[in-house]
Amino acid sequence: HAATELTPEQAAALKPYDRIVITGRFNAIGDAVSAVSRRADEEGAASFYVVDTSEFGNSGNWRVVADVYKA
């Protein structure tokens, strides 16, 4: 099962156990969220919340930071 994305309210009520950072070329924010979901799932997380997204220069590469939560 894939890790689910939390709302800001849900994330605020929970304590993350880790923070992950992924970088890559994403065509849309949805693609980045899917990549975070896969990584969170690999780490055994039940859910995640994207904290920050930023573009690296003009290369089209993105850096996505997310907190991950157990259950």
Rank of each mutant, 00 (worst) to 15 (best):
T23A: 05
A71M: 13
G44L: 03
I29S: 06
L14N: 09
G57F: 07
I29P: 11
N58I: 12
V65L: 05
T4M: 13
R19A: 02
I29A: 09
E9G: 08
P16T: 03
K70T: 08
D52Q: 13
A45D: 00
I29H: 10
I22T: 00
W62N: 01
F26S: 00
H1K: 10
A2I: 11
V65A: 03
R63N: 06
P16M: 03
R39L: 12
A71F: 12
D41C: 15
V21P: 00
K15D: 07
Y69P: 02
S37A: 15
R19K: 03
G30T: 13
R38K: 13
A28E: 12
A35H: 06
N27G: 11
G57K: 07
V68G: 00
N58L: 11
Y17I: 04
E42F: 09
V65D: 02
D52I: 11
R19H: 02
Y17A: 01
P8C: 13
D18W: 08
P16D: 00
V36N: 01
T4N: 09
E43A: 14
T7W: 03
V51G: 00
G24F: 09
E5D: 04
D67V: 07
V33F: 10
F48E: 01
R25W: 14
Y69E: 01
A3I: 11
G44P: 04
R38L: 12
K15T: 13
A46M: 10
D67S: 05
Y17H: 04
F56P: 06
T7G: 06
E5T: 04
S34N: 13
S47G: 10
P16A: 07
Y49H: 07
D18K: 15
A66M: 08
G57Q: 07
V65I: 12
A45H: 05
F56Q: 10
G24C: 07
V64W: 01
G30K: 14
T4H: 14
A3Y: 03
G57P: 08
R19W: 07
N58A: 13
T23M: 10
G30R: 13
A2W: 11
G44S: 04
F48I: 00
A12L: 09
A3S: 08
D18P: 00
S47T: 05
K15P: 05
K15V: 14
P16W: 05
Y17T: 03
A12Q: 09
A46I: 10
L14S: 09
E9C: 13
A35N: 03
F26M: 00
V51I: 11
E9L: 10
A35E: 12
A66W: 05
K15H: 08
I20Y: 05
G57T: 06
Y49L: 07
L6Q: 03
P16S: 04
A40M: 04
E5S: 10
E55R: 10
A45I: 04
I29D: 05
A11E: 01
V21M: 07
N58H: 14
L14Y: 07
V33D: 01
S54Y: 15
D31S: 06
V36C: 08
F26Q: 01
P8N: 08
W62G: 00
W62I: 09
D41Y: 15
V33I: 15
R63D: 02
F56Y: 13
E43D: 11
R39P: 02
T4F: 14
V36M: 14
D18C: 15
V21L: 03
L6R: 02
D41E: 14
G24H: 04
R25F: 13
A71D: 14
T7P: 06
A12H: 08
I22M: 05
K70A: 10
I22F: 03
P16V: 03
A46N: 13
G57C: 10
A11T: 04
P8R: 14
A45G: 05
R63V: 13
G57W: 07
E42K: 09
N58R: 08
L6Y: 01
Y49I: 07
A13S: 13
K70I: 07
A71G: 10
A71E: 13
S54V: 12
I20D: 00
P16C: 07
G30Q: 14
N61A: 11
E43S: 11
A46S: 12
T7M: 05
G60V: 06
E9H: 07
R38Q: 13
V65T: 09
N61I: 15
N61L: 15
E9Q: 10
L14M: 14
A46D: 14
D41S: 15
F48W: 04
S59E: 13
